[in-house]
Write a protein that binds this DNA or RNA. Sequence first.
DNA 1: CCTTGAAATTATCTTTTGTTAACGCCACAA
DNA 2: TTGTGGCGTTAACAAAAGATAATTTCAAGG
Lengths: 197, 197
Amino acid sequence: MSTIDTLQKLLFDLAGVLPADTEPLFAMTTPVSLETNEAYIREGENSRRLAFIEKGVIRAYTIKENGDEATLLLRWEGQFIASHDTIINRQPSRFIYRALEPVKLLQIDYGVLEEILKTHPEYEPLRNFFLMKMLAESLKMLESFVTQSPEERYRELLSERFDLVNRVPDKYIASMLGITPVSLSRIRKRMYTKGKQ
Amino acid sequence: MSTIDTLQKLLFDLAGVLPADTEPLFAMTTPVSLETNEAYIREGENSRRLAFIEKGVIRAYTIKENGDEATLLLRWEGQFIASHDTIINRQPSRFIYRALEPVKLLQIDYGVLEEILKTHPEYEPLRNFFLMKMLAESLKMLESFVTQSPEERYRELLSERFDLVNRVPDKYIASMLGITPVSLSRIRKRMYTKGKQ
DNA sequence: CCTTGAAATTATCTTTTGTTAACGCCACAA
DNA sequence: TTGTGGCGTTAACAAAAGATAATTTCAAGG
């Protein structure tokens, strides 16, 4: 199933919009391909990009004051990715979005989407869907930080997203868990030697 | 300015809706008062409550497997509070929402709001506003967990929300920072003795 | 005024993480 | 084949956090 098919089905399920009636929306979307390690959005950029990931993994990260990188989140196929600083706060992006693998996206500018929604309110449920999905995911990650230890967060990530953990270098996983790569390595050792898996 | 005035102004600023045209919306809202320590939403509850806080502080927390509480977030006047498990995921709330002070809310059921939005799409920007605001806040907290140490998160909380820190018992602040009350006490001591404030 | 209980601090000890550096592994290119 | 550089692991030590318990503080109720 193509990306547009997927999104058309989503729009039909959410709002009963027939695929034939989605032309005004998809006419304004652009397919984008990224090579491994290519930046999708750079720090300081003002583009208000919203995209649906067809294939590949994207990492959103920021550069800390001391120069180290901190990974905020990873997104992969079937998910939306959005430059939240520019879309929500209308400020230059403090984050960098970079492909960890070859990536295929279907992209729309958020400003353009807003214009379309003015004349086509029947697409509105799609916006709410992606906002709610991102909110749910953010709150889930936040919950894991206040309820779980780094080791528990890693175990959960392994059980829920084993495929992802195996596709992404450990140092980015560690950073997303809020710890250093050294510490993640120790956690792995504890898990696999003490057999408490 | 009353709560309804505040929200009417917000709706006008966001969408140009005149206060006189907001009656269908506010007719479905209910003022709610909570005493100190009163639960607004209990664990397992299915009500899809969305509220604007006029006065007071509400704490959202969950009970961990070991019986300890973990505070996910605090909300105070001028913010929205929502039972996110029930609204987004349509599952019984895993969180408890409890007043830390006497609280005044203006409440609407999310299902009712959705019905109103079907016939009054002009209110739609209000829903987007609260979703985006909650998303921005969640991402900001998430960012602090991957970029900052507990001490740095506490310092930032002090500088940005000093009033809040002084209104809320330390143990809840600690839990929201992802650490124990003992550890927060040590952080405070480090800060005020080593003078590195 | 005294009692009570919850919250915060302090102390002690254990565990985990951070920091820095060294080492081995491996893909990739010269 | 031989570097080369990035990544993960390991080591050694310092710093911070967790667990538990004792102590202090303080506000509320009797």
